[in-house]
């Protein structure tokens, strides 16, 4: 998926993403250029420095993995409901 909001994955979207990821039992990780971070950690998400147009990959492992990936993709694609 691609970060589509103009301001990138900054504090606000990262907070929303981490909140959402925390609701699932599965471990969700986000990948960017060989860097893996936990989707539950705002600090780690922010270190991705994912500006507008950055390509990210989501991976989830656990009982609700599919639901988690779907929900997160939806959030990212809706530009985090912020714009």
């Amino acid at each position: 998926m691609t970060i589509q909001n103009a301001h990138g994955l900054h504090v606000r979207p990262a907070t929303k993403l981490a909140d959402l990821a925390g609701k699932f039992k599965s471990n969700v990780t986000i990948h960017k250029d060989g860097q893996d971070v936990s989707a539950r950690s705002i600090i780690e998400l922010l270190t991705l420095a994912a500006a507008h147009g950055t390509e990210l990959r989501i991976r989830a492992e656990g009982p609700d993995a599919t639901e988690a990936v779907d929900a997160i993709a939806k959030l990212v694609n809706s530009r985090f409901g912020l714009e």
Binding site: V11, R12, A14, T15, A18, S41, I42, I43, L46, L82
Partner: peptide, 17 residues
């Protein structure tokens, strides 16, 4: 405005630390 969301993010960062 949704500026306050930034500060909510800061709170989350503090807690995560």
């Amino acid at each position: 405005g949704d500026l306050h969301l930034i500060f909510n993010g800061h709170i989350a960062i503090v807690r995560e630390l």
